[in-house]
Design a protein around this nucleic acid. Structure first.
Lengths: 223, 223
DNA sequence: CGAAGGCTTGATCTCGGTCAAGGCAGGTGG
DNA sequence: CCACCTGCCTTGACCGAGATCAAGCCTTCG
């Protein structure tokens, strides 16, 4: 299975790292257990990764143990690239069987120097990443918990590889969502309950929901 | 005055866009009044900009008039590049006499294709930008107002072109700071008062401060 | 001189954090 | 098979940090 092909299937979000180019042979595949660490907060940034299947969280730990989830990583997402030589976040897998391809940073840099199509691809990924981070900043800027949760659901719905009939999966726990939105778990739970009781969303089970009234949901997150 | 030279003087933050290369001749210089708009939220992303002197804010407006400041732009900062064809934020100048150089996106893209040193430069800028946005996300993840304000002051101190003896200028108003940190103006003011009365910082006037007790400030923002 | 914008402080109210408890599903061991 | 545990989720009660409302001061500008 080729990386480029695979990436093109999912992931409207981050474009595939490369077309059927030399890249495919450069990556090392690996599968992880739930909770397993891909790299730590202070590790050297010597590799790039692309998440192929499953889900992961990119998180930063503060000195007193609070955890901030900076990003959720979904199939097709490329991550691990930095300006500096060290990571500033750790990455942990959420679902068991999460699969990654790992690329050597040096090889990537060589390839970017020699192959300008590849270089452009990486550039586009980086720009797309910046755009997403800006949206994230705006989401975190919302003061009301309900707005954040609504925005989060919309984001998940747009990123999700659509399952049957608008059903969106939430691979992460409520605790993960809380640390992503920087609010308490209880507040996440309460907000979801509110949205459900107002017929804005419907749950199949705790980890699968459908948007019933998109207009109302967008009105909640108010942009 | 050459762009590269100028950029190298300030701005540890975003590296200069190019060495004394063809780029210098590609840019168009322009100066703005305070409050003047560089581009609007839905404008086409047809140009890149580098802020040469002054300060600006990149902001997003929500439907009910709330404003979220996504980033403050300082001398040396490059902005306006996107994956898509439209901006998602507007940029407004803060200080009168703010000066920008504007580059045509198409020309930049051509240049990146033909000049791989330039391409690498842009890549580094993009990666650095991502790193900064991640730090920003972590800052916005802080729950306490005092933590956010402390983190903001540290960020400003590290970005500031150092004036005499550790004096840091705040070109933006308290309202701007509030919208950047997503808290109320009154809270910003109160937090600053607290920090000042605890001898953590000292103000020369409302727009200039010095860090008196860096250790305490870092303890406040707790990371 | 007055008006306007920016900044600070006080008073009140509210949203969400925190603490506490209980339900539910899955896994393990007797 | 059941008992038990653990992790995850939800709900309730209470309290406090910060939003909101209100007022006053200062500087700047016409």
């Amino acid at each position: 299975m080729q990386l480029a092909t695979l990436s093109a299937q999912h992931a409207p979000r981050t474009p595939p790292i490369a077309r059927p180019s030399p890249v495919d042979s450069l990556g090392t595949w690996r599968s992880y257990e739930a909770g397993e660490t891909v790299y730590g907060q202070e590790d050297g940034a010597d590799y790039w990764y692309q998440l192929v299947d499953g889900a992961a969280r990119k998180c930063a730990l503060t000195s007193e143990g609070r955890r901030q989830i900076v990003d959720f990583l979904m199939p097709g997402d490329l991550f691990g690239f930095h300006a500096g030589s060290r990571h500033d976040c750790s990455v942990e897998c959420i679902t068991s069987g999460t699969t990654m391809v790992r690329f050597q940073r040096q090889q990537m840099e060589l390839l970017m120097e020699s192959d300008r199509h590849f270089a452009r691809r990486v550039r586009e990924i980086a720009f797309a990443s910046i755009d997403r981070m800006q949206l994230r900043t705006i989401l975190l800027g919302r003061s009301r918990a309900l707005e954040r949760v609504s925005g989060f659901l919309i984001e998940m719905a747009s990123r999700a590889q659509l399952e049957t009939e608008g059903l969106v999966g939430l691979p992460m726990s409520r605790y993960d969502i809380a640390d992503y939105l920087a609010i308490a778990v209880e507040t996440v739970s309460r907000s979801l309950t509110t949205l459900r009781s107002e017929q804005v969303i419907a749950f199949l089970d705790t980890r699968h929901f459908r948007i019933v009234n998109r207009r109302a949901l967008e009105a909640q997150c108010c942009n």
